[in-house]
Amino acid sequence: MKRLKRILVLTLLLALPLLAVRVGETAPEFTGTDSNGKTHKLSDYRGKVVVLEWHNQGCPYTKKHYESGNMQSLQKEWTAKGVVWLSVISSAPGAQGYVTAAAENDYLKRMNAAPTAVLLDPDGNIGHLYAAKTTPHMYIVDPSGALVYNGAIDDHPSTDAGDIPSSKNYVSAALREVTAGKKVTEAATRPYGCSVKYKE
């Protein structure tokens, strides 16, 4: 009986992270600080569509989408339509891709990037909450706060910017549907990229 109880507790513990990020369920609430020191809560944006983009400026998969200007044009297009775009950096201090707020602001300027904000998540709290696996790894939250997309930016898992023109951009497709009040057709795909450099 005692053993059974222990197994039950263990199972529950193991099962907990499972409940976090299923498409169709409520997206986990978080509070994060951006590169300008401003606090953002996911629930602040209830009523709006929110994009979460896991980011690492040194990762070749992320570079593919920034050096080509692909990510910036998505950011501009969709924020202009009222979508909130939060880039999240979960690299730990000392790990590859970790940046200070000042360095990130320089990068944003240099790259002409246009997210609503960049959340600095050096402890990996937001990353673990969403089980973000790669950079990039993209999530979309609908106006009711439900997670409606979890996965890759597009269907070409490569580091080659030459693949972008022939790629199907899953995020664009999902945003077109969710902003039109439709159900997202392709709601989960395999994210591709570098692993997120979490604190060990």
Partner: peptide, 12 residues
């Protein structure tokens, strides 16, 4: 041949 090789970092 194209590849991505990774350790803490990934290099295409």
């Amino acid at each position: 041949v194209k590849w991505v090789v990774c350790r803490e970092v990934c290099l295409p």
